[in-house]
Amino acid sequence: MKLRMLGLTVAGAVGLSALSACKKDEAPPAATAAAPAAIKAAPLPADTPLPKDEAPAQEAPKSGGTIHGIVAFKGTPPAAAPITPGSDPNCDGMDLVDQSVHVQGGKLANVLVRVQGNVPGQPTTPPSSMVVVDQNRCTYQPRVQGAVAGQPLVLMNSDGTLHNVRGMSAGKQLFNVMQPPLKTKEAMPPQEADVIRLKCDIHPWMTAWVVMSPHPYFATSGEDGAFTIEGVPPGTYTLEAWHETLGTKTAQVTVTEGQQAQTSFEFIAAKGK
């Protein structure tokens, strides 16, 4: 199912009165037989269920070359901080530790790797697909992903409780969207936004990140540390690997038409860790 862009910036502040809405007695709306065929343009964000199988794939051109790499972590990763979920029964089953540094077998997940700056021949319009952020068991999913400037964010609430999504960048609030249970809304980040942090004031442990680029040449490392960026025009580029707490690393890579370029990044544990 394809969704039409609303192009709406949602702003505002969540008052303390909104916190009282996140209670057990907030009953989720009754399930409908089928979701509407599309989100219709409206003066305010539209609410509609979003199918679980909606594919938010990026639309990078398939010509050009491919960049493949691994993000490694050297040393002992910091211990995951425990999370106290509170008394909301809709949060049952959530992760009880913070996943800001997610290392398995010396490989680092949730690193956003992107080509720095503009790319010759890059698309002049953003992809028609939307960037989906789901709120499931009081956790943002995925935790880290990329987006092209001009792409709207689809903010999906799969929980039977009230959430809000506050988008912040460089200390400035970009939008603040209140989400009733089992509803979907949209927010349009400003073109100049770079790294956007998403927070829920009602469930303060909830955090996610959306890293913006002027083009679709980016990818997020998986649990095996691997990432792949496809359709990159031939040329020599600077790649940036961004992590929410460990900072950034850069590497030079040369892309050849129809070929796969290999690169790697390594983040190191802080001294004494």
Rank of each mutant, 00 (worst) to 15 (best):
M1Q: 07
R4Q: 14
L6M: 15
G12L: 02
A13W: 12
A18F: 09
A18L: 11
A18G: 07
S20F: 13
A21G: 09
D25C: 02
E26N: 07
P29E: 01
P29C: 01
P29Q: 01
A30R: 12
A33Y: 08
A33E: 11
A34G: 08
A35M: 04
P36R: 01
P36A: 00
A37S: 08
A38H: 05
I39Q: 02
K40M: 12
A42K: 09
A42Y: 05
P43V: 05
L44E: 13
A46K: 04
L50F: 00
P51M: 09
D53I: 00
P56L: 08
A57H: 06
Q58G: 14
G65V: 01
I67Y: 02
I67M: 00
H68T: 12
I70A: 09
F73T: 09
G75A: 09
T76D: 14
A79S: 15
P82V: 13
I83M: 03
G86P: 12
S87F: 13
G93R: 08
M94L: 10
S100L: 08
H102I: 06
G106E: 04
V111Y: 03
R114E: 15
G117E: 11
P123N: 10
S129C: 05
V131L: 00
V133G: 02
N136G: 03
R137P: 00
Q141T: 12
R143K: 06
G146L: 08
V154H: 00
D159G: 00
D159A: 00
D159S: 00
G160I: 05
T161P: 08
R166W: 06
M168C: 07
G171L: 14
G171W: 14
G171T: 11
Q173D: 15
Q173H: 13
F175K: 12
N176M: 10
P180L: 14
P181T: 06
K183M: 10
P189F: 04
P189S: 03
P189K: 06
E192A: 12
A193T: 09
V195E: 08
R197I: 14
K199F: 10
K199W: 04
D201L: 13
V211C: 07
M212F: 13
M212N: 13
S213V: 05
P214R: 10
P214I: 07
P214S: 09
H215F: 14
A226D: 08
E230A: 15
P233A: 11
P234K: 04
G235K: 03
Y237M: 00
T238M: 11
W242T: 09
H243F: 02
E244V: 15
K249C: 03
V253Y: 06
T254I: 03
T254D: 06
T254C: 04
Q259G: 01
T263S: 13
T263N: 14
E266H: 05
A269Q: 02
K271F: 03
G272A: 05
